[in-house]
Design a protein around this nucleic acid. Sequence first.
RNA 1: CGGGCUGUGGCGCAGUUUGGUAGCGCGCUUCGUUCGGGACGAAGAGGUCCCGGGUUCAAGUCCCGGCAGCCCGACCA
Length: 578
Amino acid sequence: MSGTRLSQLFLRTLRDDPADADTDGHRLLVRAGFIRRVASGVYAWLPLGQRVLARTAQIVREEMDRIGAQEITVPILQPLELWARSGRDAAYGPLMFRLQDRKEAQFALSPTAEEVVTTLVAGEYSSYRDLPVTLYQINWKYRDELRPRFGLLRAREFLMKDGYSFHVDVDDLKRTYQDMYDAYDRIFTRCGLVFRAVEAEAGEMGGDTNHEFMAVAAVGEDDFVWCPSCEYAANVEAARRRPPTRHEGLVDAPEMEVVDTPDMPGIAPVAAHLGVPESALLKCIVFEVDGADGPELGAALVPGDRDVSVHALALSLAPHPVRLLTDEDFAKRPELTRGYLGPHHAALEVVVADPSVAADHPWVTGANAADRHVRHAVLGRDFAVDEWADLVAVAPGDACPRCGSALAIDRGIEVGHVFQLGTKYSEALDARYQDDAGDQHPMVMGCYGVGVSRIVAAVAEQLHDDDGLAWPAALAPFQVHLVALPGRGEAAEQVSAAADRLYDELTAAGVDVLYDDRDASPGVKFADADLLGLPVRLTVGAKGVARGVAEARLRATGAERELALDAVVAVLTDAPSS
RNA sequence: CGGGCUGUGGCGCAGUUUGGUAGCGCGCUUCGUUCGGGACGAAGAGGUCCCGGGUUCAAGUCCCGGCAGCCCGACCA
């Protein structure tokens, strides 16, 4: 039952690249006939793709079951009222697909399922004796992305494993969180991905811990920072560098002096004009932060050769929301001469600076007047800092916060995310339990996502070459691509018979084998075999059959080996991928 | 939402400037030759030229209005 004849398979490979595919993985998945686009960000899974998807889902399922999570299925079609209760109706906004029934009741297609699952648990469980419990489903999710991209990578319909755990307290949550983290590690390892677990930005709740699992890929949409020497890794938004030591005391410098910098609102031209490095300039980013008496004007200071991490800035002033000034804001405030601002501006009510601003040299910065900068600006003499925070956005080469080694930055595809949620949803949706003293508490929750269809895309992105895909054995739609090359010579019948026999034997032995029994030329068969990317290609041709051998070739490495026809099954069942 | 580009057999594209028989490559069907790296010849099938309106003797082509797709940006997990 595990074999399929290529002549019967619903498959058409394409010789030309599809016009709308712009990454290697997407291009090859389409060319090899694994998927077909139905609408923007919406794909049909053809038999080969379907098998890969099913295998991926099965790996996820096995690892979830292994840590005691229980599989359920909740509706994709969900009443909008449920989303209104948690307030995420508005939060998700146009990202949710919405529809209504004939009675005009509002529904949404599930972009995730915290509301449904939390409500479900709240309805069944109410005692500390019931907890903890972890539920998960593997189901289609819908997000009306502004811009679907890269085929399966950012699709509007995608297969996701979403898991939810419910606990009496944070300590208990942390145990399940660690189990999930470990399970995710196994999942992505089994899928053959090169990946890294990175610390992610804490959510708006502040204390939430969460990690993203990033498959390393140039086409990824997220940057992450990692340390080659230790285990530190973080999403670029959450990453921090080891802060430089602050220089103590006043820097000795001549009096602050205004210099003409006509029509130079940027760092680079000013540095060039004055003949100083960009790192000698003080970058001054103005923002608004909500204070006790309404919005206050603030400035964030970093050296001119560095960028401000908006997330770090927001964190430094939390819980007060921060917002950078827009073009309109500048238009409304002519006293803020954009491009020529300095930290000594009279309108600034709060100044936050990176430790590197406490340097052993004075600064060049804006003069708060158009076309003018100042030099010899000295911290503590010419400008003051109210708060110190690690504001500099991490760049390659910065010191690791843990070990001090030079950090590296890579791009990745987010294939998984584990999150310690806390009580946000349990409070909004009344998921409470009673403790042994009879008191009511909101359940403490965790949520855990795996992009199942996205794993398929990420693997295609990582494992391929110019000729086609190269599936790891764990995900491959079939393990063996059996190619018969009977030709038209005297041996044709003999070769076909030998290939047929091998196919039957392998199938009987439980090996997943795709048998290219088509009446096609060798070149076509080999090209398709490379394109489909099954781990082992087994070629049966006239020359080999005459000597009683078939030729095995590994897709990933190109390594070849001759196998005696009567030993093939034994070798391939022993170690399908070796 | 802003900017740019594109919609022509299943796929990839030309034709649109200058209106006049709808083409090429791949794929598909049939026949013959070929058969260990996408073979060759011959004969075929397959198209509301995205949709709607308009101009014109005549529209794939010109005009107006829609829709869809792709890319860049903004945005987002």
